[in-house]
Design a protein around this nucleic acid. Structure first.
Lengths: 132, 132
DNA sequence: TTATAATGATACCAAGACAGTATCATTAGC
DNA sequence: GCTAATGATACTGTCTTGGTATCATTATAA
């Protein structure tokens, strides 16, 4: 079970990188600096742009800039963009409702763990991840 | 992100089921009662047997019985058998060490969440999941 | 005004985990 | 010795993740 995928991870690094700059940074530059494969990073940045977290400038000397201050971006925001949301497990409650024994109890325990994790992730804003 | 997979889920249901019985239960019976696909359940039970959690009797009137009391089986035991262990994310720390900015901070936050989850899962023993 | 350097949009491919099936071999009881 | 069970193991399909590739569009600068 992976908490965070590379998608999200790279997205966060990219945002961190951009948070230090005023001028737009191009994919080529960021790919070089952050050591992230160019085409992949590009796709990620395009998505972040579409989500309104970054803004983009096309054409020569173009690139991406931050559109939302990092202290307004939560870790869950990023993860929800790039990953499947947290689920206790496959939802088989309706189809396969705990036959006689113990599945409901399991579900409720897992659900509380899920909520705990979500609460934690929600509490983390990106500004707290950027070293100065 | 799925906390628990069907593998583990079914394993737990099967153990719950067996905990109520003295005589061996065959796959066919359990498949019927628990509404779990036969061949899949069979594979799961064979693994639990190999792990020493169940024991098996071959031949006619054979089947599976519990070999370890449910209060000695932790949720993590089951999950480690059937799923990938919890990881904060792909381990790219060595190859791709937080270039200038914020990845180490992210890792440490994720790691503490990971440990929190593991602690919770470890604290759950199967006897607490069985309704009487 | 044209070459060029950038993004927009999108289609495509590969690996790995998960979910499940199928089959042949072996064993034990009646 | 038939039959009902497990042992062992190989195989298939699907989904998510991780990534590549390509064509179209836009803006700048010479």
């Amino acid at each position: 079970m992976k908490l965070i995928t590379k998608n999200s991870d790279y997205a966060i690094r990219a945002i961190s990188y951009l948070s230090g700059k005023k001028k737009p940074a191009a994919v080529s530059e960021m790919s070089r600096e952050l050591k992230i494969p160019g085409p992949f990073l590009r796709k990620i940045l395009q998505i972040l742009n579409a989500e309104g977290i970054l803004s983009s400038n096309r054409g020569k000397n173009g690139g991406f800039t931050i559109a939302v201050p990092p202290d307004k971006i939560r870790l869950t925001d990023i993860m929800l963009i790039f990953q499947e949301p947290i689920k206790p497990g496959e939802c088989l409650i309706k189809k396969n409702p705990c036959p006689e024994l113990g599945n409901c109890l399991l579900r409720s325990r897992l659900n509380s763990i899920k909520m705990m994790v979500e609460r934690e992730l929600y509490s983390i804003t990106l500004d707290t991840l950027i070293e100065r």
